[in-house]
């Protein structure tokens, strides 16, 4: 059993994860189409207005974005998602296992750095939990599912953290850690986590006021 969940099951989870992402990408592509960009001539005599100096900078753009209205949330969520991807990818323990399995691995963060990032991640998770529970506006649209999602995202980190520090029963923790990680990979493309696909698929390709870049797809 242990051999199965730390062996084949990992590959199955990864296959489902990437397969699921591909499925969602194709689903998005099927739901949308490209539109031709309309081109019209600039009317004679119409000169382009030059915006005042200082409107090109990144900081100015931030000022007009959600960073101005929700600075804490933007910082926390950025750290959270950064850690969510970086920690498992560059964790020494993971990379040793991958090296043994396929003879190749990415470089690794030092153990103390990974530990620090895990702390950071969990603090961000606690902030999310706090918002869900106590912020009026977040509560207004929170359902039980949202707590489950938060648990699903943080469980691999909590269990991994406990196992690494040998808190509670190590063997149980490591099994739970592996299961939690696999559960996340398997469920991610098919639950609320689909926003990871949606973010890139929509914001970067669909033509809209808030588009990132000059995509010319439409629904």
């Amino acid at each position: 059993m242990y051999d199965f969940i730390r062996g084949p099951m990992v590959w199955i989870s990864l296959a489902i994860f990437f397969g699921g992402i591909l499925y969602q990408v194709f689903r998005f592509l099927a739901l949308s189409r490209t539109v031709e960009e309309q081109q019209i001539k600039r009317p004679t005599g119409l000169v382009a207005e030059v915006p005042p100096a200082g409107t090109e900078g990144f900081l100015y753009a931030l000022k007009l974005s959600i960073f101005r209205t929700n600075p804490v949330m933007v910082v926390v969520t950025t750290i959270f998602h950064f850690c969510l991807i970086m920690v498992p990818l560059f964790l020494l323990g993971h990379n040793i296992l991958i090296e043994r399995a396929i003879g190749f691995s990415l470089f690794s963060f030092s153990e103390s750095f990974s530990d620090f990032l895990t702390w950071l991640f969990l603090f961000c998770g606690i902030y999310f939990l706090y918002r869900r529970r106590f912020s009026k506006r977040v509560r207004a649209i929170t359902s039980r599912n949202d707590y489950l999602m938060l648990l699903l995202a943080t469980a691999p980190f909590i269990t991994g953290f406990l196992a690494y520090h040998q808190i509670l029963h190590y063997n149980t923790m490591i099994v739970m850690h592996i299961l939690a990680g696999e559960a996340m990979l398997i469920l991610a493309p098919f639950t609320k986590f689909v926003h990871m696909v949606y973010f890139f698929a929509v914001r970067f390709t669909v033509k809209s006021e808030w588009a990132l870049g000059s995509g010319n797809r439409t629904w």
């Binding site: 915006p51 005042p52 100096a53 200082g54 409107t55 100015y60 000022k63 007009l64 006021e209």
Partner: peptide, 22 residues
């Protein structure tokens, strides 16, 4: 038509601030 909604209000004020500062 993206000319005078809330976002344009914020943009206009931000731009005015810059020109005034200048």
């Amino acid at each position: 038509c993206l000319a005078g909604g809330q976002r344009e209000v914020q943009e206009l004020n931000a731009e005015l601030e810059l020109t005034l500062k200048e």
